[in-house]
Amino acid sequence: MQIAQSKTSASPWRLLPLQQLIPWIVPAGLIFVWQVLSQLGLLSTRILPAPTAIVQAAIQLTLSGELIANVGISLYRALVGFLIGGSIGFGLGLLNGISPIAERFLDSTVQMIRNIPHLALIPLVILWFGIGDPARLFLVALGVFFPIYINTFHGIRSLDPNLLEMGEVYGLRPRELFWTIILPGALPSILVGLRYALGIMWVTLIVAETIAANSGIGYMAMNAREFMQTDVVVLSILMYALLGKLADSIVRVLEHWWLPWHPSQGI
């Protein structure tokens, strides 16, 4: 234990700065080559704009407020869709995980719907909701629902039944059993589901925004394509990547807070 602790706490400090830089050498090199090729005219701007052009586009769109407005609306759609789908998935996962009757009643239905790729529903969803925000929120919520549901459900079901028996022997009431054993025991699995769900959230939003939208990052990209502004297209793609990375980092922080006991946290 002590060896492992000193290893994890010492390495980031002692090995600075060279070791920390190594992972960045290849990406930095690629960007450099890309820039050189663009400036020499070997890489047409129609295919890929120079990195500096993308930075310029970013500055321009930020100053005009367009970038922030579009990122804001995309974030809003992602978040609302996620909250709706995630909370339904979490609630249903808890219910079916705890109650075998509810599981028998609902689980096979959920599994059947899960086998439909949710993006295949786009034509139907457009017929139902039109091309406004409700259609996009519906798709995001649907996509997010399944990973959260399945991982919550399995997190509870794969709990060690011996721990639950122990809890009963030690006089825990059902409510206490839930808060001290069931939920903390299922939490690692729930967070895995959260990670998957965030990935699906962005993918769904990208597709939904490129098909029919008049705002958002996807709209920004599709609109730029009409005018052959490859720099804006690439910028939009980078924005998605950045937001995806941000979401992933948030889950990592949550894991750090909520699972300090977990082997993945290096104790």
């Binding site: 028996e165 022997v169 030690y170 206490e176 025991g185 006991w261």
Partner: peptide, 24 residues
Amino acid sequence: DARVMFQDSRLLPWRRVLDNVSLG
């Protein structure tokens, strides 16, 4: 009135030692 000690310790890994002992 009884407490059981099992072959596997059945401690909760997400609680610290003291919180495991004062369970319930």
